[in-house]
Write a protein that binds this DNA or RNA. Structure first.
Length: 344
DNA sequence: AACATGCGCAACCGCCTTACG
DNA sequence: CCGTAAGGCGGTTGCGCATGT
C-alpha cells in the first residue's frame, strides 16, 4: 500500500497565481514551513492548488532572497562555463548563483543568453575553433563550437565557488575527458575528486570532466595547476610556482622561446606569468598587442583565412591583458599541431 | 488604430529517483 | 521486495505584453 493520492486533479486551480493565493502561501510557509509534505500543504493553507504547484510557486517566486532582474556579466560567464561543463543541469547551475532559480536560469539561457552568444559568434563567418577535438569526440551539450569560446577567458574568477572545482574552460569540448596519461603527470597538480561540485556531480557526469586545483601547501602557491588541452604536454614548476619549462610531445620549450610575457593576477592575490607565443614570432610586450596579433597571424585584410584564429587571439590577449585572466595560451606555428594550455 | 508577430516568463507536464508502507 | 506516491528536475507550453507593419 502506497501513500495517499497527491491531490484531486479535477478539483485544483491551474494557471497564474493571484496575489491572494500568493499571500496565503507565503504566510503559511513563513509560519509553518512545508512540514515536509507539499501535498498536504495546499489544504492546510486554504489553497485550491496542487502541492507541486505550491512548491514551484514558492521556490521560483515567493521564496525569500529571490533575485529578479538582469543577469550580470559575471553570472553570464558562470552560466556559460557551467553549461559548457555539465549541460542543462539547471538546478546545479542555479546552486552556484545565489538568488537565482533553475527556472530563471533556464528561461534566461533559452531566450537570451543562447541568442546573445550566437550573435557574437556567427558560425557561417567563422572557421572551426582552433581548439582540439579528441579522436573520440562527442558533441557537447551545446554543439556549436563557437559559443563557449567567447567565454574561454572566463576562468579568471569564480566568485561563486572560490577554491573549489573549476569546470573546464569554455572553448574546450566539455565532454572530452582529460587523457588519463596526463592525469598521472607528476609535474602537474591535478586531482579529480574531493571537490564539492564534483561530489555533487558524482555519478552524473564523466568524472574526468572535472579537476580540482588543489592548493599546493609546500610552496604556498597554487597558481601552477595545469590543465592541458591536446596531448603529451607537461609543465614543471619552480619553487615560486611559476612555470619554468613546458614541453609539447617531447619537444621542450624553454622560457626564452616563449614570446610575450606579462604578470597577471591569478585570482589568488598573486601574480602569475602570462605568456603568448605564435609560431616563431612573439610580442615583446611593448608593441600594441592587437597589431602584434595581426602580424603574427599574417592577417591584415578583410576576409582573413585565419579570421577565427585572429579574433580568438585578439580576444584572448586583450581580455587577458586588461583583466585578471590567468590563462596561458600558446599556439604552435604548425596549424595541424596546435596545442593549448591553460593554467589556473 | 488594428492586427500580426516576436519575446519573456510563469506555470505545467511528464519522466526519473527516492521514500514509504 | 514490490507497488505506489512524493519530490525533484528539465523540457515545453501558452499567456500577456511589446514592437513592428
Amino acid at each position: 500500500m502506497g501513500r495517499a493520492p497527491c491531490c484531486d486533479k479535477a478539483n485544483v486551480k491551474k494557471g497564474p497565481w493571484s496575489p491572494e493565493e500568493d499571500s496565503k502561501l507565503k504566510e503559511y510557509m513563513e509560519r509553518f514551513g512545508t512540514g515536509g509534505n507539499w501535498i498536504a500543504l495546499p489544504q492546510k493553507a486554504g489553497l485550491k492548488r496542487c502541492g507541486k504547484s505550491c512548491r514551484l510557486r514558492w521556490l521560483n517566486y515567493l521564496r525569500p532572497n529571490i533575485k529578479h532582474g538582469e543577469f550580470s556579466d559575471e553570472e553570464d560567464r558562470i552560466i556559460c562555463t557551467l553549461f559548457a561543463s555539465i549541460g542543462s543541469r539547471w538546478s546545479i547551475i542555479a546552486a552556484q548563483l545565489p538568488g537565482r532559480t533553475d527556472n530563471d536560469i533556464k528561461n534566461y539561457w533559452n531566450t537570451k543568453l543562447k541568442k546573445k552568444l550566437m550573435a557574437m559568434a556567427p558560425q557561417s563567418q567563422r572557421k572551426p575553433l582552433p581548439f582540439p577535438s579528441p579522436p573520440n569526440h562527442q558533441s557537447s551539450p551545446l554543439s556549436s563550437h563557437s559559443l563557449f569560446s567567447l567565454y574561454k577567458d572566463s576562468s579568471a574568477s569564480y566568485p561563486c565557488c572560490p577554491d573549489t572545482v573549476k569546470p573546464f574552460s569554455a572553448g574546450f569540448d566539455p565532454i572530452s575527458p582529460i587523457p588519463s596519461n596526463l592525469l598521472a603527470k607528476n609535474s602537474t597538480t591535478l586531482a579529480t575528486n574531493s571537490s564539492s561540485l564534483f561530489q555533487i556531480q558524482e555519478g552524473l557526469v564523466n568524472p574526468l570532466q572535472y579537476y580540482h586545483p588543489v592548493k599546493d601547501n609546500s610552496n604556498n602557491n597554487n597558481n601552477n595547476n595545469l590543465l592541458v588541452f591536446g596531448s603529451e604536454a607537461s609543465c614543471s614548476s619552480n619553487s615560486d610556482g611559476s612555470c619554468s619549462q613546458i614541453s609539447y610531445g617531447g619537444r621542450e620549450i624553454k622560457q626564452d622561446d616563449i614570446g610575450f610575457q606579462s604578470y597577471i593576477s591569478n585570482g589568488y592575490g598573486e601574480n602569475q606569468k602570462f605568456m603568448f607565443n605564435y609560431g616563431n614570432t612573439s610580442c615583446n610586450g611593448s608593441e600594441n598587442l592587437n597589431q602584434w596579433a595581426e602580424k603574427a597571424t599574417g592577417y591584415f585584410g578583410e576576409t582573413p583565412p585565419l579570421e577565427y584564429d585572429l579574433e580568438d587571439v585578439k580576444h584572448l590577449i586583450s581580455s587577458s591583458s586588461n583583466t585578471s585572466c590567468n590563462n596561458n595560451f600558446l599556439l604552435d606555428e604548425n596549424k595541424t599541431q596546435e596545442k593549448y594550455m591553460y593554467y589556473y
